[in-house]
Design a protein around this nucleic acid. Structure first.
Length: 881
DNA sequence: ACACAGAGACACCTG
DNA sequence: GTCTCTGTGT
C-alpha cells in the first residue's frame, strides 16, 4: 500500500453526514462546478449512489459529466481521491480526464492513483499481488511483437509447420480468448481444435507457462490475472471493495467481456455467484428499438434472473457506486472484442440502476444531427436516444452528398473544397478533417495534397514505439534492467551483427533450456566453456560483459546518460551511422528522441514500464493542417467541417464486415457512419465515386446503402458543375475536346437544386459510363452491376484498366514522390511565406537524407540528395543543416 | 551477410 | 499496385 492516503486511515465523511452536507451547501448557490450543466447532466453528476448508466449521445458533454462527477464526489467529501477508481480505454482519454478533473479540483487530482486505463490499473493491481499468479512483481509486459516471436518458438517446439499455422494467427486467437476472459481450460472445444490439429489448448497452456518462466505477461493478462486473483482470494478482493468507494467507467460500450468481469468483481460484493461464469447473467440482447427504460426504473428482466440477483442487490445496492458512461450508438470496436451487449444489458447486471440519457447535443447543427439520427435509427440493437440541439449556425448547411468519378477526382475535389473554405471563410485547416473507412484511402489524399501544397496531418500511422530502432534500443535497456528478459536478449545479441548466427543461438538456447536459466545467464556460463568456437565465444563474451557492466551502472549513472552510453558502446548507434540508406538519419533522430523522452522519468525501469503501456506519442498541433484519419480514430473528436469520402458498397459498409458480421456487422458499420457524421459541427460532406482501385484493380462501385438511409430533409445532393461534368460519361473515352478545355477551370461545385435522377452503378449495362451528369440520389443499386449481392467485388468485372483521366489538364497528378510518413506528415502550404531556403543550402530530409537545394519555387524545393538523387520535395519536409 | 524474388495481405487498431 | 515478410541464392 503506497497510496498517499491510506483508505484505512480517516474514513471519508459519510455521504449525507452533517459535514458532507455542510461542505456541499456552502453558500446557497450550487457549487461553481455545477454551473452550466443541464438538468440531465446534473442528475448524472449528483446521483452518486448506486449503479448509474449515463447514455451520452455524441456531443452531449460526456467527459464533462464524468469529470464533474469526480469533482463533486471529492468536493462533497464522499471519498478521498485515492478511493475513486476511474477507468478509460486509452491513455489519451485518461490524460484528458486527469487534466480536466485537475482544472476543477486542483491538486487533489494528484492523489488519484486509480485514474487510468484498464491496463495501467491492471498492472498496478497485478504488481501488488503478482506472486498469487506465480509472477514476481517486477514482471515485464510483452507487446504484440514479442508475443508473436514467442508463439513462433512454441509452434516450432511442437514440431508444427509454422507456415500452415502462423504465429500471427494464433496470437489473434489468443487475444480473442483473452478478450473473452477465457483461460486455457475455458476455451470451447471447437476453438481448441481450430488451431494446429487440436493443439490450440495445449499451445495456450504452453504459452502461459512460458510467460511465467519469463516472468512476463501480455496485455490480456493484465486483466485476466487480476480476475483470477479476485476470484481465488476473496480477502484481496475485499481489500479493493473497501478501497474503491466510487467506480467510474468511460466508453462503457467498448468494454469486452474480460473488462466487464473485472469491473463486475470490483463493483459487486462477493456472492456465491460471482465466481461462476458470466453465462448466467448473459441476457438476450436488451433494448430493442423503442424499448426505453426510463430513469430510475429497472428494465423488465427475466423473472428467474431477477429473483436470483435481486436478493443480492437489495442490501448491497447502496455500496455499488458504479457509474458507466457510454453510447451504444458509438460502439465500433466489436471486431476487437467489445461487447455492445454490456451496455445494452447494464440494468440487468446492476438491478435498480439509474439510467440517465444525455440527449442535448452541444456540438452540431440540426441538419447534421438530423441526418445522423435518421441514419442510426436503422439499427435494431440500440437503446434509443433522440438527440436535439439548439446550435444555430447562420449558414445552417445541410449534409452534402457528392458523387465523383474515381478516387483521384474525389481527392481533387475535396482538396479544392478545402482551399475554398480556407480562402472564402478563413477556415482553419485544423478544424477540418477527412475521415476514411480504410487507411488505404489516405494515400490518394496525401498524393493530392502534396502536389497542391496543402498542409495535412495523418493521424494514427505507425507508432513511435513500434519502430525498429526504438524497439532495438528498448531491448537493450530491457536486458540491462531485466536480465531474465530472453526475448529482448534474442533481439539484440546479434544487432549490430557480431557474427552470432543461428547456430550459436541454438546452442545457447539448448544450454539455457537444459539448465532452466535465462539466456543471458546461460551466455555468461557458456563463454567459459569450450562449447563455442573462439570467434562466437568472444563476441558473446563481449555482449554479456557489456550487459553486466551497464547493469552495474544502473544505480550510479543518470538513466539518460546510461542509455546513451549503452547505445554507443554496443555499437548500435554506429551501426546506423554507417548505414547509407535513406532512412538511417531518421532512425538516429528517433533514437535521440527516445533518450529525450526518457528525461521525465526517474529510472530506466520506470521508463520501460511507461513504454509498455503507453504506445502513443503526442502530435504537435501547432501547424495548421487538415487531419486525415480513419473513422475509428476520429471517435471522440470534433471538427467544424468533416469530409466523408468513400461511401460505396463494399468499402463502407465494408465487405468483410458484411461477410463476417452479418446483420450486426452491418449495424456496426452504420454506427461508424453515425460516428463520422456526428464529428461535424457545421459541415459534413459525404462523397462516393464510381470507380475505385481495390487491391490493385480498378473496380466499379455502387453508392453505399447508407446514403439512402439519410433523410431528404437534411441532405443536399450536390451536383458537379455542368461545364466540368455534363456528358462526362459519354465523353470520357472519346475525350471530347470541348470538355477537356473547361475541365477544372471552374472551381468547386455548384449546388444542384433539384435532385431526381439516379446514380447509375457500375459502367456497362446502363449505357452511361459510370455516373452521368444530372443524376441524383435516388440510388439505383441495380445499375451496372446487375446485382448488388456482392457489391464491390461483383461490380469488378467492369474495366480493369485504370479509368483514364478524362481531361488532360489534371492528368498529371503525380505518383509516388515525397510522401514521407513518420507518424505525422505535414506539407507546407503553397500560400506560405517565402521559402526559408535558397539554392545551395544544405538540407536534411527524413527519408532522403542530406542534400543540396538546387532550386526553389514557392515552398517546393528541388534538392540534389547525396544518396537519393534529385527529388522535388516540399519545404516542410526538410530542415536546414 | 546481403540482395533479390515470390507470396500473401490489402477493414477498423488500445494496451 | 505496393508493402512486408520469408526463403533462397551468392
Amino acid at each position: 500500500m503506497t497510496d498517499s492516503l491510506d483508505p484505512s486511515g480517516p474514513a471519508a465523511p459519510r455521504a449525507g453526514s452533517i459535514a458532507a452536507r455542510a461542505m456541499a451547501a456552502r453558500g446557497s448557490r450550487a457549487p461553481d462546478y455545477l454551473a452550466g450543466l443541464n438538468a440531465e447532466q446534473r442528475a448524472a453528476v449528483e446521483t452518486t449512489e448506486g449503479p448509474v448508466l449515463v447514455l451520452a449521445g455524441a456531443g452531449t458533454g460526456k467527459t464533462r459529466v464524468l469529470t464533474t462527477r469526480i469533482a463533486h464526489i471529492l468536493a462533497t467529501g464522499r471519498a478521498w481521491p485515492s478511493q475513486i477508481l476511474a477507468v478509460t480505454f486509452t491513455n489519451k482519454a485518461a490524460r484528458e480526464m486527469k487534466n480536466r478533473v485537475g482544472l476543477l479540483v486542483g491538486e487533489q487530482v494528484e492523489g488519484m492513483p486509480w485514474l487510468g486505463t484498464f491496463h495501467s490499473i491492471g498492472v498496478k493491481i497485478l504488481r501488488r499481488h503478482a506472486e498469487l499468479v506465480g509472477l514476481k512483481s517486477n514482471f515485464t509486459i510483452l507487446d504484440t511483437d514479442d508475443q508473436i516471436r514467442l508463439i513462433k518458438q512454441l509452434i516450432q517446439a511442437e514440431n508444427l509447420d509454422d507456415k500452415r499455422w502462423p504465429a500471427r494467427g494464433f496470437a489473434q486467437m489468443l487475444d480473442a480468448w483473452k478478450n473473452k476472459g477465457l483461460t486455457a481450460k475455458d476455451i470451447p472445444e471447437g476453438d481448441a481444435r481450430a488451431f494446429a490439429n487440436g493443439k490450440g489448448r495445449e499451445l495456450y497452456a504452453a504459452y502461459q507457462a512460458r510467460l511465467k518462466s519469463l516472468n512476463a505477461c501480455d496485455f490480456g493478462d493484465l486483466l485476466l490475472h487480476p480476475i483470477a486473483i479476485f476470484r481465488a482470494h476473496p480477502d484481496v478482493l475485499a481489500e479493493y471493495h473497501k478501497r474503491f468507494r466510487y467506480i467510474l467507467v468511460d466508453e462503457y460500450q467498448d468494454t469486452n467481456v474480460a473488462q466487464y468481469l473485472w469491473l463486475r468483481l470490483l463493483a459487486q460484493r462477493p456472492t456465491r455467484r460471482d465466481s461462476t461464469a458470466i453465462a448466467e447473467t448473459r441476457a438476450p440482447a436488451a433494448g430493442r428499438k423503442g424499448e426505453r427504460p426510463s430513469a430510475g426504473e429497472a428494465a423488465p428482466a427475466q423473472a428467474s434472473e431477477r429473483s436470483e440477483r435481486s436478493a443480492v442487490s437489495e442490501d448491497q445496492r447502496q455500496q455499488i457506486n458504479i457509474c458507466c458512461v457510454g453510447d451504444d450508438d458509438q460502439s465500433i470496436y466489436g471486431w476487437r472484442g467489445a461487447e455492445v451487449d454490456n451496455i445494452l444489458r447494464f440494468d440487468k447486471d446492476f438491478p435498480g440502476a439509474t439510467v440517465i440519457r444525455l440527449e442535448r447535443n452541444y456540438r452540431s447543427t440540426a441538419h447534421i444531427l438530423g441526418a445522423a439520427s435518421h441514419l442510426i435509427a436503422h439499427n435494431e440493437d440500440r437503446l434509443g436516444k433522440t438527440l436535439f440541439t439548439d446550435f444555430s449556425d447562420p449558414e445552417h448547411q445541410k449534409v452534402e452528398v457528392n458523387a465523383g468519378w474515381d478516387s483521384e477526382e474525389e481527392a481533387r475535389a475535396i482538396g479544392e473544397a478545402i482551399e475554398d473554405l480556407q480562402r472564402r471563410d478563413s477556415h482553419d485547416l485544423n478544424d477540418m478533417a477527412i475521415l476514411v473507412r480504410a487507411s488505404f484511402q489516405m494515400r490518394t489524399f496525401e498524393d493530392r495534397f502534396v502536389t497542391m501544397g496543402l498542409n495535412y496531418r495523418v493521424i494514427g500511422g505507425p507508432r513511435f514505439y513500434e519502430r525498429m530502432e526504438v524497439r532495438d534500443a528498448l531491448a537493450y535497456f530491457r536486458c540491462v534492467v531485466q536480465p531474465a528478459d530472453d526475448l529482448a536478449f534474442e533481439r539484440i545479441v546479434n544487432t549490430p551483427k557480431r557474427g552470432l548466427g543461428d547456430a550459436t543461438i541454438r546452442l545457447l538456447h539448448d544450454y539455457a533450456r537444459s539448465r532452466e536459466i535465462p539466456l543471458i545467464a546461460a551466455a555468461g556460463e557458456m563463454v567459459e566453456t569450450e562449447e563455442l568456437k573462439p570467434k562466437p565465444r568472444n563476441a558473446l563474451r563481449r555482449v554479456v560483459t557489456d550487459l553486466v557492466r551497464w547493469a552495474g551502472l544502473l544505480d550510479s549513472t543518470k538513466h539518460t546518460e546510461l542509455a546513451e552510453q549503452i547505445l554507443e558502446e554496443s555499437g548500435y548507434t554506429a551501426m546506423w551511422q554507417a548505414d547509407r540508406s535513406a532512412e538511417a538519419p531518421g532512425r538516429l533522430e528517433n533514437l535521440k528522441e527516445l533518450i529525450r523522452s526518457m528525461e521525465e522519468y526517474e529510472s530506466l525501469a520506470s521508463f520501460l514500464e511507461h513504454v509498455a503501456l503507453v504506445m502513443d506519442t503526442e502530435q504537435n498541433a501547432d501547424l495548421d493542417a487538415v487531419s486525415i484519419m480513419t473513422l475509428h480514430a476520429a471517435k471522440g473528436l470534433e471538427f467544424e467541417t468533416v469530409f466523408l469520402p468513400g461511401w460505396e458498397e463494399g468499402l463502407f459498409p465494408h465487405q468483410r464486415a458484411l461477410d463476417e458480421g452479418g446483420r450486426s456487422g452491418l449495424e456496426e458499420e452504420r454506427r461508424l457512419a453515425y460516428v463520422g457524421i456526428t464529428r461535424a459541427k457545421r459541415r459534413a460532406k459525404i462523397w462516393f465515386v464510381s470507380n475505385r482501385r481495390i487491391h490493385g484493380l480498378w473496380q466499379s462501385t455502387i453508392p453505399s446503402r447508407f446514403l439512402d438511409e439519410l433523410p431528404e430533409a437534411h441532405v443536399e445532393v450536390m451536383e458537379a458543375n455542368t461545364n466540368t461534368y455534363g456528358g462526362y460519361g459519354a465523353s470520357r473515352w472519346d475525350g471530347a475536346a470541348a470538355f477537356q478545355e473547361n475541365a477544372y477551370q471552374t472551381p468547386g461545385w455548384r449546388r444542384a437544386q433539384a435532385a431526381n435522377a439516379g446514380f447509375a452503378g457500375g459502367k456497362g449495362s446502363s449505357g452511361g459510363d459510370g455516373w452521368s451528369g444530372g443524376r441524383t440520389r435516388q440510388i439505383d443499386y441495380g445499375g451496372g452491376a446487375g446485382s448488388n449481392a456482392r457489391a464491390g467485388a461483383a461490380a469488378g468485372r467492369g474495366h480493369n484498366q485504370p479509368p483514364k483521366q478524362g481531361f488532360g489538364l489534371y492528368a498529371s497528378a503525380r505518383k509516388g514522390g515525397p510522401r514521407e510518413i513518420e507518424g505525422e506528415l505535414v506539407a507546407k502550404s503553397v500560400i506560405a511565406e517565402d521559402s526559408r531556403f535558397a539554392s545551395g543550402d544544405r538540407v536534411f530530409h527524413q527519408k532522403f537524407g542530406n542534400g543540396t537545394v538546387a532550386s526553389v519555387e514557392g515552398n517546393k524545393l528541388t534538392v540534389d540528395f547525396d544518396k537519393a538523387g534529385q527529388k522535388r520535395v516540399l519545404e516542410g519536409f526538410v530542415e536546414g543543416v
